[in-house]
Amino acid sequence: MAFTRTAAADPHRHLHAQAQWQPIELVFWAATLIPFFLFPKYLALASQIAIAALFALSLDLILGYAGIVSLGHAALFGVGAYTAGLLSTLGWGDPLLGLAAGAVAAGLLGYVTSFIIARFRHLALIMITLGLGQLIHEVANKASWLTGGSDGLQGVRIGPLLGRFPFDLYGYTAYAYSLVVLFVVFVFARRLVNSPFGLALRGIRENPVRMPAIGAPSPAHVRKIYTIAAAIAGMAGALLAQTTSTVSLGVLDFQRSADVLVMLILGGAGWLYGGIVGAIIFMVARDQFSGINPQLWYFWIGLLLVCVVMFLPNGVLGCLQLAAPWRSKAS
């Protein structure tokens, strides 16, 4: 991962400086409200972008901050989605309950698998995450008595949000709900990465051998962040299940793992905002291209990715950082 941001000599001052909210961040979050007023017909898309952004944020925590490249992240997303969906089929259709349950279930799976994850790096790690993801996909397919198999889970009934706001066809509730969850999780993640724990993670990413040598328990840190990221991925899955009232094997697909990785790299890994920006660009581009040409839009998405790599290495945000002096001053 080519990105170097040297911590200042005094780590506490460095952390403090990092934790300050920049004006542009406030502008960014204010801008997320624009769809309500200017694009009310794009709210369904906006809510799915927010969910993808949450999912990418979760991947960023492990990839951008701890150097764990995962090609099986959809497994956690999917477990969250199935948990929320299954609860609703049993009559517990309250969205917040499902959201919490999705986070817990995915967090548990993340905790269990983290014991394997923390032991490996490089290609072995990528392939083990991929393998685990595929295994869980297959388990869900086999357990059709529980999951509905490839037809998808039937009878998902999601209640109104907070007991008052049903999920409407236009996606007002869906977007408001997804956006609030994204923002709350983002604030949490922001605090997390700007804590001493976050700094230790970055140390692991840059040099996994040295960190234990200076007294930071590397595998324990990795397990912790992986579990947190898993819970967030589970929340994203639960959100998708609830806002669309559908759960199918698609939530566990390899393609979903690959897409979220592409979104994150596109935006720039290791920024928190990278995943969000990447999700916005990828999803909007995909929506527009596939609207124009439903058969061949892959070409334009591919071209977009190639151009980003050629002209904006390190992702969109990575390049903005080089161009914007205010950002480098902050670090």
């Binding site: 991962m1 080519a2 990105f3 490249v69 592409v262 890994a269 190639v306 050629m310 290495p313 992702g315």
Partner: peptide, 8 residues
């Protein structure tokens, strides 16, 4: 970085 290679 390897991530850029993946994206390309």
């Amino acid at each position: 970085g390897e991530l850029d290679q993946v994206l390309l």
